[in-house]
Design a protein around this nucleic acid. Structure first.
Lengths: 197, 197
DNA sequence: TGTTCCATGTAATAAGTTACATGATTTA
DNA sequence: TAAATCATGTAACTTATTACATGGAACA
């Protein structure tokens, strides 16, 4: 159960599926994503399990809203989840996989462009994270704020730190790729011609 | 389709599902994982799709082996995949999510232990990556080696770099957590007593 | 009048995990 | 003789993605 726990966590205040999606897109997206088509069924399931309850509320604009709130069981489940020991977990990083197998492209000059394109996207994400951080409540002395905001800021820093490291990795790659292709050109002057074919 | 492409990439030389699992566990695990129960069905599917073919080969020890090799269509599919533009992709990081919601534990002193436990696991992974790197062919001047080995090393560096950044993040967190709990203790001397309850 | 926002969903598919089944050979 | 290694799989389940459906209200 995974989005399940994210939703329980977000329901510290009562919200509709629509609200939850907005919060995921704005505050949570750097470590979790979800679509409506997953959120709505999960909320139903959580209600069936007794972890949340819902009431229908008329909306100012648009159709009725189904507003969910935590039950005691939901609060207990959330607490148990955050308290069980952290695990690094598994991850799959497609762009690293592609790079690993890039020689199969049979285009030796592809790596440079590949990393350049990646780097561009990373910088965009990093800037987005930094913007969130810049607007963070508390400014410099953010560590006297409440526990919740403090933990959220630590989580945000995880995103920033990793993304900075990824950009740094791109730069390291580009340096090596350029140096290497220069030195390969020196060894085999026919390289330039091959590259153009 | 995802493990599909990983398997196509690994099949640059013919291998059985068992061999593939071993290679995933040793060389690929820092960006992709897979169990036998996923590998075998995917191989069958790839064969049905015409991307690989298999022949049964008697084994020295144990039962017959089904050895897969790429077809022309498989090689084409692999090339198309590595050549289509890289994307950052989405990721879900459970430990960051837990930290984000950690205030729901109602145990204000939990964060420190949480990060300490995480850090331990990260250092183990980082050491494993560094060991792979230490034994890398080419030593210092690894950039004159063949394209395949070069790209694989860049991929490995992605793992090392990110894991180093994560450990650094843990240290940053621990510093802030300790400083903060000291300053909170000063402001409210009853904190120590509360902590023990 | 067309686009965005509000609001909730279903259906089909893909991808991955966990648990289980089978059985020979080699090593301790 | 017990455990590890070799070797291939199936079944059930969980999790997430993509595509589609509906319809009102606000805005430009």
């Amino acid at each position: 159960m995974s989005l399940d726990h994210i939703l329980l966590g977000l329901l510290r205040s009562p919200q509709s599926g629509y609200d939850l999606k907005r919060e995921i897109d704005t505050r949570v997206r750097y470590f979790w994503q979800a679509e409506f088509s997953q959120i709505y069924p999960v909320l139903r399931r959580l209600e069936k399990g007794g972890f949340v309850r819902s009431r229908t509320v008329a909306s100012d604009k648009g159709p009725d809203r189904r507003v969910y709130s935590l039950t005691a069981a939901g609060r207990r489940e959330l607490r148990d989840w955050v308290l069980d020991p952290p695990e690094l977990g598994s991850f799959r990083v497609e762009f690293v996989a592609k790079l690993y197998f890039l020689a199969a492209s049979e285009q030796p000059a592809r790596a440079e462009q590949f990393i350049e394109e990646l780097r561009e996207q990373m910088v965009i994400r990093l800037d987005a994270l930094r913007e969130i951080e810049a607007e963070w409540p508390g400014g410099d002395g953010h560590d006297t704020i409440d526990d919740e905001t403090f933990h959220q800021h630590l989580a945000l820093r995880a995103g920033v730190t990793v993304m900075e490291a990824r950009v740094g990795w791109c730069d390291e790659c580009l340096g090596r790729i350029r140096k290497r292709s220069a030195s390969l050109r020196k060894r085999s002057p026919s390289f330039e011609k091959e590259k153009q074919q």
